[in-house]
């Protein structure tokens, strides 16, 4: 398996993702600068967190015009794998690879803290090492992670089991109290129709080593690595 971490100007979780893929998962991984136009046949593309283009205009709105994004779209259209984390999720929405939008957190403040997620669909290539309804702990760090979409899109997401993670309590209870940013239907992560493009606000790369407080996030990397291998 081979992975690529895309580097936009302003990406800042690029080295974190690269580190986990290389040093924790022992997978071949390269950085790809956003002005490049060749993904060199990688299996997995990671759009990392950060502030691409300083989040000017709107999070992810400028990054989607970077030259490499044409290749990322082709890569996704060909059925290969893409994961967008935090700002990467925002870029995927702006690029139209996933439906919906991310609004400012309802507190209007940036928020960095560990949250609990309930696995809503454990049959995807990104979640096959997790159990259905399993509760995992993964941190969030964003100012604009409040997921929103129209009613019909929500129905489609729900009907087709495309909502992958929901914010919840430690015991898996879903309620407003445990929704950190006001996301519609408590959505923390969704997958596309074909099931090869995942977008999520929480950062699995920050919870992939026990020294950092837990390894729940590692399960997501393990799922994709074992699937591709």
């Amino acid at each position: 398996m081979k992975a690529a971490v895309i580097v936009f100007p302003g990406s800042n979780c690029d080295t974190d993702c690269w580190h986990v893929i290389r040093d924790v998962m022992n997978v071949n991984v390269d950085f790809v600068w956003h002005k490049e136009t060749d993904l060199k046949g990688v299996d997995l593309v990671v759009l990392p967190g950060g502030f691409s283009y300083g989040d000017y205009l709107r999070c992810g709105a400028i990054a989607r015009f970077s030259p490499i994004m044409k290749e990322v779209i082709k890569h996704a259209d060909a059925g290969r794998y893409v994961i967008g984390i935090c700002n990467g999720f925002q870029v995927l929405l702006e690029a139209g690879l996933l439906p919906g939008a991310l609004l400012r957190n309802r507190t209007l403040r940036f928020m960095c803290k560990p949250v609990y997620l309930r696995v809503e669909n454990s049959t995807t290539i990104f979640t096959n090492h997790l159990k259905q309804n399993q509760v995992i702990e993964v941190p969030i760090a964003h100012g604009e992670g409040n997921y929103f979409c129209d009613e019909r899109t929500l129905e489609t997401l729900e009907g087709n089991k495309k909502i992958i993670f929901r914010y919840c309590s430690e015991n898996g209870t879903i309620s407003d109290e445990f929704n950190p940013n006001g996301s519609l239907s408590h959505i923390a992560g969704i997958i596309n129709q074909k099931g090869n493009v995942l977008g999520m606000m929480p950062h699995p790369e920050r919870m992939s080593e026990s020294i950092l407080g837990g390894t729940d996030g590692k399960k997501i990397w393990e799922s994709i690595v074992s699937y591709v291998k």
């Binding site: 974190d16 928020m111 960095c112 760090a141 950062h203």
Partner: peptide, 14 residues
């Protein structure tokens, strides 16, 4: 206060 700061980026914060 500190929840408004990204205190985990770089994945070195032990």
């Amino acid at each position: 206060i500190y929840e408004q700061y990204d205190h985990m980026v770089r994945t070195d914060t032990v």
